[in-house]
Design a protein around this nucleic acid. Sequence first.
DNA 1: TAAAACGGTGTTAACGTGTGCAGCGATATG
DNA 2: CATATCGCTGCACACGTTAACACCGTTTTA
Lengths: 334, 334
Amino acid sequence: MSVTIKDIARLANVSHTTVSRALNDSPLINPKTKQRIQTIAKELHYSPNYSAKSLVLDRSYNIGLFFSTLHSGTTSGFFHEIVRGVNAVVKDRYNLVVKGIDEYKDFRGITPKSFDGIIVMSQSAQDDPFIGHALARGIPVVVLNRHVENAAITNILSDDREGSRSMVEYLIKSGHRRIAIIEGKRGFSSTQLRKEGYLQALSRYGIPALREYQAQGDYDFASGYTAMRQLLLLEKKPTAVFCSNDDMAVGAMKAIAEQGMKVPDDISVAGFDENRFSAFLSPALTTVKRPLERISRKGAETLLEAMEHKQMRKRTLYMNTELVIRQSVGKAKE
Amino acid sequence: MSVTIKDIARLANVSHTTVSRALNDSPLINPKTKQRIQTIAKELHYSPNYSAKSLVLDRSYNIGLFFSTLHSGTTSGFFHEIVRGVNAVVKDRYNLVVKGIDEYKDFRGITPKSFDGIIVMSQSAQDDPFIGHALARGIPVVVLNRHVENAAITNILSDDREGSRSMVEYLIKSGHRRIAIIEGKRGFSSTQLRKEGYLQALSRYGIPALREYQAQGDYDFASGYTAMRQLLLLEKKPTAVFCSNDDMAVGAMKAIAEQGMKVPDDISVAGFDENRFSAFLSPALTTVKRPLERISRKGAETLLEAMEHKQMRKRTLYMNTELVIRQSVGKAKE
DNA sequence: TAAAACGGTGTTAACGTGTGCAGCGATATG
DNA sequence: CATATCGCTGCACACGTTAACACCGTTTTA
């Protein structure tokens, strides 16, 4: 069927051991023999059987990239950016296996023999059993996007609380006092942190946090729309809305437009994430940039390094968020 | 280190052969022994070494999902939807390896031993060497999104030409005569097909296809914006613009708004793809729905089936596109 | 000049599974 | 009662690769 090192050995009149060494560029082998073997291998289009390599070398050549879910709450832009960032680092050195944690009935398949390392893009504490399992099995783990207290994990994330606080402070400095929030998916830690930032900003400026200005969303377009409609029903409408992500901001702007109101003249809208489309909305969206590509690259690099040294350091890396000021936020009128 | 069938065999006082059979639920084994072994295995948290299984069973447990590229021209919504669709079928039966073809320097790593099957989400003829390689190695291949003439390939795609033709016909029926197109990424076959549909529609209604109404894009938001700006510079502005995907339609709408014009009153905009956000734009985008999730699910199912029967049928499946009429297209004025 | 070192190659076992075949005792058959 | 059948289990090998160790002829060293 497919050609093995034994086939090459036969043709080169050497043992398969010599072939193995030659192809792995071992210094033990005579350069001329090595050359001869390598050309034969090339002619036969030899390529190693990775299952066999895996078995003896005890490496799977797989890296797992796990999302809490591939569905609700994981936006397309987010997903795309992460996969892209990780793959850019991993290249063709490893197979990148992309999965949603919620696709697994049990985690028996998650073993050190199947995954040389794992990156978890974690949204909520629901992922902890998964992370714990991987860790217990001795697999090097990097957790992105969420802080997890543990002995042997590197965390890489943006400081969402800081980011949303500075955004809401920006709204306040623009004169807004009636500021609403559309929250993210319930149970996601990013939801919690962004909310906290919002509350902190209000509290710093002595603005009371009104319950009716806090609307639940789930990070999807539709939820932003629905939540905004609710907010617009209020007697004392907010003059500014902080949306916990850009997708919901799109939905919110839709709801506003439907009422014949204008952004930012009648109401200001701010987002979070800096999606690719945000600059191309009308008006362009003022938002908080989260360095997702950097986070994922750094995560992949950290993992590869740890895999090499067989040592994962416990540490937490924060990547700075950044205010992106565009046109969707204006000065408050009154 | 980790527990193997031999460890279990020792504890159960049987040979590892018996353990192997018991765990694979072979009818040869006495039910009581089987039961005993299975409980021991469970207690020890045994999970098979897939590298070893792979070696002897000659299966990798990997399915490759390859995109032409993970970068320019592959939109986030598209990417997300495909990965989601395929994973929904594959579940935890296989590892889904997600890669961009352009990440490979050479294809030596693409062998039947590394991939039990491959799904190619193909955008252009540039992928043909890759597809040819996989085929030559005897790997079952399903190609989505593009038609490839070959002996042993199943193609699954939407009829983009048909879709764009019916969209442009809809524009014409709405009274438009000066209809522009913003094309997709150069070299992508979808770009070509959608253009053809546009031209066919015009020709059917005897409307001349003007060169200055055909603007180049690359499927990204920014390119839609830039292209639309060009179109708005024309003396005889188009009254309707067909954008080859929804992302570019967003960019185009931005450019229109910047000129103080309104959609659809001053100019109509149509898209293609039916992205998640399209309903939430203002105005909501009239577009062509491409059944991406269905395509990817069907692709995955077809592949799995072919892998089981070790037989890939040559055939081409077309999935219907669907006109989604919303508010971004209006009646022509004059 | 004998012994040690060296460069290059082969022998053999190992990694953890699955499987063809032989073997065993108990039961059914002639 | 001898033989065939049946149900269950184990032996031995295979999959393709790497690696510890042995080996052997040549060169260096004492």
